[in-house]
Design a protein around this nucleic acid. Structure first.
Lengths: 207, 207
DNA sequence: AAATATCAGTGGTCAGACCACAAATAATCA
DNA sequence: TGATTATTTGTGGTCTGACCACTGATATTT
């Protein structure tokens, strides 16, 4: 396969061709794409070049490979792109203050989203969580982030949460009643109140 | 190099190791990373595996390779990535919705942060922007994100913005006056008003 | 001193060889 | 026959070694 025009790399060409194949054969998420060896033959390139293209797409989360079976198209969800970018961004960005602040923003966004779209039936699990004795801060906000029903926001929250954990800034769970209040406020769709309680929970100022 | 624990793939391990190397040697964007052959030796893996890792990172826009010279860390604004996601991901409606919604949340977070911490002197550039005839939506929000003074939030906004651009959902700039109002509201620290204007700008509902 | 030729290092690509694994198939046994 | 067990086939995973093309530094020549 010729690198089209200005000598772009073979593996990039393969990615493009693959897109055409997927389009032409109307392959959907879950479907199997041609094997590495077949692609290698069909496109007249080395198998290693095919693999470079596939590995790149895999890291993007666009395909999934299963040894012994083949390579399959994946739907956009579950991709690790955000995760990856996150770790790369965070590695040199040690501004703890930024991390914490961003997490606060995201958590408040989650609360807003949950209030905006959830009906009462969604809250059963959240309420149930509070019953457990050993429930912790992370579990509760994990559920809230989940209820935001936005996969991307969920991912971002997870990254931030992981990082905060890595910093060993543990979130104590001293005032269990505050969490109850928070959830009550969310359930009753009182955004203002919910955010106020949240800020109390995180010891934030109220500006 | 052993795939850590549950037999994850070698190239993934290489990505992780590479991250460590970058961190340990304090490499910055523009710096050169070890050559493929050296990495192959240092990590006890085949060069082809190293290449799989590097190609993936390249497609993500995290590194840049120059034949005959070497591989360099990039200030990650991957154009490749943008293109690719645009063509591959367009199918998934929920993902698109999530991207847009997340961007909205982050942009509103930016507005809140800016209001919280900026003094008037910070706004000169923002005001100046509006003077230009051909100023566009992206430039304005870039400035706002910058003024948030939170590097992490800024990065996240950039990623999301790239996503949106990749989706070819262009942000028109029809009501220039609205942007003026927005900035005025921010400058006068009127959060409620600013967010309201923002929602108008983005055609969001007002719940 | 300047222009040129050479050389070492680097990424780009290919081919072939194994290995590990999974599913389909064939052979075997009850 | 029907179920179990080997075998085969196809697939991804990895390594090695070989070239090529290009860059930049070095050595050589003019």
């Amino acid at each position: 396969m010729q690198p089209s025009q200005n000598e772009s790399k073979v593996y990039i060409e393969i990615v493009k061709q693959l897109r055409l194949i997927i389009s032409k054969e109307a392959l959907k998420p879950g479907d199997k794409i041609p094997s590495e060896r077949e692609l290698s033959e069909r496109l007249n390139v080395g198998r290693s070049s095919v693999r470079e293209a596939l590995r790149a797409l895999e890291l993007l989360g666009l395909i999934e490979t299963r040894r012994g079976e083949g390579t399959f198209i994946r739907d956009f969800h579950g991709n690790q792109l955000v995760q990856l970018l996150g770790t790369f961004v965070l590695q040199d960005q040690k501004a703890i203050k930024d991390v914490l602040e961003t997490r606060h923003s995201i958590e408040m966004d989650c609360i807003r989203l949950v209030i905006k779209r959830c009906n009462d039936s969604h809250f059963t699990k959240l309420r149930a969580l509070l019953q457990f004795q050993r429930v912790n801060d992370e579990q509760i906000f994990y559920e809230i982030a989940l209820l935001s029903d936005n996969h991307l926001v969920m991912r971002i929250w997870q990254i931030l949460n992981d990082y905060v954990k890595a910093l060993e800034i543990k979130q104590e769970m001293k005032n269990k009643s505050l969490y109850t209040e928070l959830i009550d406020a969310i359930v009753s769709r009182n955004e203002k109140s919910a955010l106020l309680i949240y800020k109390t929970l995180r010891n934030l100022s109220f500006d």
